[in-house]
């Protein structure tokens, strides 16, 4: 009897049920993924020339690593290859869609010199939240309005801006803060700009061959426009649409940008699926500034540069906000 039990027990252990149940890995598509990614970047990525990148040369350098990569080691190779493009917009996504960035733009470190809790010290009351949590606003003691825009997520939440502008209508100026905003949908920037502009503003996304593609047209719109002086706060962690918005707003005479140069993400992205079902998000068109300069890497410089360090914030000071208040006082 005991021998039977011991034999049965050993059968289970020796069989390695877990390995048997889970089975082997799927068929490797590593080389297919690499080839597909190479073709996509070559044909769709708009900054190869601007960044002086010889893509085919890079592919040749990385090919041996691809050939040697077993299983999920390919993630490392594709990640490193995409990192060569030095583009904060680019994501490598797992087969289930988890996004991972391949590059951290240098000015992102400027985001450490911003703290929303320090901003609150300049108010004598709690900030109001609107726009599904994407907007904060209140009136500073100097009777200056303040709006913080946290993100450019899709949605109708942006139309809360109309109620906010009604609330701030009697202020003598407005601070519009897009620091530490990673961007999102350009439509959000269009709606917001339309509440401040008196004239029509047109801009284009350019295709990889340099010709204009999709064109945006922004005219005065909304029930409550704001035409008093506006300071737009920006920093190195303002990225993508958080760079488009200040660039659009700079076309409006009463708007001044204050802070530090934005991150430098000028691309507009598409997502492509690789043969293994991994995905990559890469820019396929791009924005230029109204003076023709590339936003990619260069960012949007402020009209009034106010250097701000993490130490300033740790000491409870927001010099950029202080400068904007002084400008509008």
């Amino acid at each position: 009897m005991r021998k039977s039990i011991v034999a049965l027990f050993l059968c289970f252990v020796v069989a390695g049920c877990s390995e048997m149940v889970v089975g082997p890995s799927g068929t490797s598509r590593n080389v297919d993924d690499f080839v597909s990614l190479g073709q996509l970047v070559r044909s769709r990525y708009p900054f190869l020339q601007f960044k002086h990148i010889n893509w085919d040369s890079l592919l040749a350098v990385y090919r041996p690593r691809v050939d040697q990569a077993k299983g999920d080691e390919i993630y490392t190779v594709l990640h490193d290859l995409l990192a060569e493009l030095k583009d904060g917009h680019i994501e490598l996504r797992t087969e289930g869609g988890f996004p991972t960035q391949t590059y951290e733009w240098p000015r992102l470190q400027g985001g450490k010199a911003y703290n929303p809790l320090v901003v609150r010290k300049y108010f004598d009351r709690e900030l109001r939240v609107a726009g599904s949590g994407n907007l904060e606003y209140e009136i500073l003691p100097e009777n200056i309005g303040y709006i913080y825009l946290a993100a450019f997520h899709d949605g109708n939440w942006v139309y809360d801006i109309d109620g906010i502008l009604a609330y701030l209508s009697n202020t003598k100026g407005l601070i519009f803060d897009v620091r530490n905003n990673g961007g999102g949908n350009a439509d959000i920037a269009n709606v917001i700009t339309s509440r401040f502009t008196s004239a029509v503003i047109r801009y284009s996304f350019y295709l990889p061959n340099g010709t204009p593609g999709w064109t945006g047209t922004i005219g005065p719109s909304g029930p409550n426009s704001y035409h008093k002086p506006v300071a737009v706060l920006i920093n190195g962690a303002s990225f993508s649409c958080a760079e488009l918005l200040p660039e659009l707003m700079k076309q409006i005479p009463q708007v001044t940008t204050v802070g530090d140069t934005t991150g430098g993400g000028g691309g507009s992205n598409d997502v492509f699926t690789l043969p293994s079902n991994k995905r990559i998000k890469i820019p396929t068109s791009y924005l230029r500034r109204f003076n023709g300069e590339m936003i990619e890497w260069n960012g949007i410089p402020p009209d009034i540069r106010v250097p701000q360090t993490e130490a300033d914030v740790n000491q409870g000071r927001d010099k950029q906000l202080e400068r904007a208040i002084a400008l509008l006082r």
Binding site: S18, E19, V22, S25, D72, T94, E95
Partner: peptide, 17 residues
């Protein structure tokens, strides 16, 4: 103490153990 094997296609079709 034992042995774990996982296949999670949210990451990939590769088996980890």
């Amino acid at each position: 103490l034992g042995h774990l094997a996982i296949k999670d296609q949210y990451i990939s079709e590769e088996k980890y153990s």
